[in-house]
Amino acid sequence: MKNLTRFLFLIFAAQILASSCSSIMKTYSYKDKKTDLKQYKTYAWINLDHFVEDNKKGNKLYAKYILDLANQELKKKGFILDVENPDAVFLFDTQIENRIAYNQAPQVSVGVGFGGPGYYVGGYVPVAGGQITQENYDEGVLFIEMYDTKTQKLVWRGWAQEKISFTTDLETDIRRAVEQIFMRLPVKHK
């Protein structure tokens, strides 16, 4: 009984430790296979007007911060800001999506079996575990898109998503998201 109690305590401690760890940011990108991104050297931003209105309503509070970080990353890649005649235009947006995750606790079982000459009988009896729990959480998504100004077609998109909560340090996570998204932009001008 003492070993079973110790074992159940270790399972409980492992679940607490796993749930207290911070979530992992996932980043993705898409590139149009027909397009050589090295041809784009100048850029501008489009669709920034809605951020001003959303900011007045209390939404999109980090839009200016994201824009500044993105400009820094584009400058590191050798892009030049040109609002008059850019080769490419970028836009970005943020979303918070409600998600549900289902988890199942490990099934702890005890095996019981016996056999005889020519006949074998076996089975197991579940002792504990196997409970399914539901977790509601919010996932923050930042995406940045790049369009060709002549064809107006999407040539590259990068996005990051991460589980967020009231303890999330949004400024640090946004900085990391912008850096990781632009690491996936496969071009660097000298």
Rank of each mutant, 00 (worst) to 15 (best):
S29A: 11
P126R: 05
T151C: 08
Y102D: 04
T168R: 01
F166A: 14
T168L: 12
R175M: 12
K31S: 14
V125R: 00
E135L: 14
V108R: 01
K64M: 13
E73W: 01
A128V: 14
P106S: 15
N98C: 06
M146W: 00
I24L: 09
I144R: 02
S19T: 15
R175I: 08
E145R: 13
I11S: 07
M146C: 07
L81F: 07
A128D: 06
L154R: 06
D54G: 06
Q107V: 12
T172C: 07
V52L: 09
I181R: 00
T42L: 09
D68T: 09
E162T: 10
L48Q: 07
D54V: 01
H189N: 04
A101M: 09
D93C: 02
T42W: 02
F79E: 00
G122D: 04
M25R: 00
L61W: 07
G158C: 05
L74D: 00
I80P: 10
D148W: 03
A44E: 01
Y40N: 11
Q107W: 00
V112T: 02
T149L: 15
V141S: 04
E179S: 06
L154D: 06
Q134K: 12
H189T: 10
Y40M: 11
N59K: 09
E135S: 11
D148V: 09
C21Q: 05
E53D: 13
